[in-house]
């Protein structure tokens, strides 16, 4: 008896968890496919009677969310590319290249992890304003170009690269730049993919910084555009759900394809140190 009951209870609880996670998301998709006002009746329907793309059409044509989508893509892809190059090079150097003060510098960098980003946000805004970068997409992306966590992640992984390999390349006459690009980066591919996924998702989802740095609607990223829309169309549930689907879809897609890489990145930083 007990042999059946325990696994049954465990899996019942786990399935209940899955329902609790998925219900809001499925409901969001359902409501986003309803015509305006259809979800606000008694009793509220769970599924659209006749699915329609009306809300999405409105978002794209009337409310210009396509532009916000483009802005978000530009910011996230740009930040991802720069983060992979900057943090990749730095992480490799901290792990494999020998220079004076290296380890002390790295230890100092790790201390920065304790500082929450909010402390920097007011002066950062003033700094970018002086540089003329407020209200630009570059200004939104710039603070994500380098991160201590990214450097740390690459370094941990790069520690496993054998020194003999680098020495052999040096003996063959390869320059340090060529070694980094042609020998090391291909070896670091898994951790660089993780870093890319982290940076993309992080910049895509970021809200406070783009909200602060952007004032012109034309440059709004999707989260800022959605939050603004949600403030104006408080009762337009169907439209809001469509906007939410649009905002979540790209990160969900990235996660679906890079899930393993993503989760491995978390545990890389977490447990060992």
């Amino acid at each position: 008896m007990n042999r059946w009951v325990r696994p049954l209870l465990l899996h019942a609880a786990l399935v209940a968890g899955v329902v609790a996670i998925l219900a809001p998301l499925l409901w969001m998709v359902g409501v986003s496919l309803m015509p305006t006002g259809a979800s606000q009746v008694e009793p509220p329907p769970l599924l659209p009677k006749q699915p329609t793309l009306e809300q999405y059409r409105q978002l794209f044509l009337r409310l210009n969310l396509a532009r916000a989508l483009g802005n978000s893509l530009l910011v996230s892809l740009g930040a991802t590319l720069c983060a992979v190059v900057c943090n990749g090079l730095a992480g490799y150097a901290f792990a494999c290249l020998r220079f004076r003060g290296r380890d002390r510098l790295f230890a100092a960098l790790l201390l920065l992890l304790l500082i929450p980003g909010q402390v920097a946000i007011l002066p950062l805004f003033l700094l970018l304003r002086t540089l003329g970068l407020t209200n630009t997409l570059v200004g939104v992306a710039l603070p994500s170009f380098a991160s201590v966590f990214g450097i740390f992640m690459v370094r941990q992984y790069a520690l496993s690269i054998p020194q003999e390999l680098l020495e052999a390349a040096r003996v063959d006459g390869a320059s340090e730049g060529r070694i980094a690009l042609q020998v090391v980066f291909p070896l670091l591919r898994p951790v660089l993919v993780t870093l890319a996924a982290f940076t993309f998702v992080g910049t895509w989802n970021d809200f406070l910084w783009p909200l602060v740095v952007l004032s012109d609607e034309r440059w709004y990223t999707l989260p800022v555009a959605l939050a603004t829309l949600a403030g104006e169309h408080t009762h337009d549930a169907e439209l809001m759900m469509a906007g939410a689907v649009m905002t979540m879809a790209p990160v969900l897609l990235v996660f679906a394809f890079l899930q393993r890489h993503y989760i491995r990145g978390l545990t890389l930083g977490g447990v060992k140190e």
């Binding site: 900057c86 290249l97 946000i121 002066p123 003033l126 700094l127 380098a146 340090e176």
Partner: peptide, 27 residues
Amino acid sequence: ERRAGWLFIAPALLLLVVFFLLPVALG
């Protein structure tokens, strides 16, 4: 190797100092 090391950490370090450390201090 030493010069390469500094060169490779330079972009990330510069970005972190200008866009994180400096703002924290200015805060």
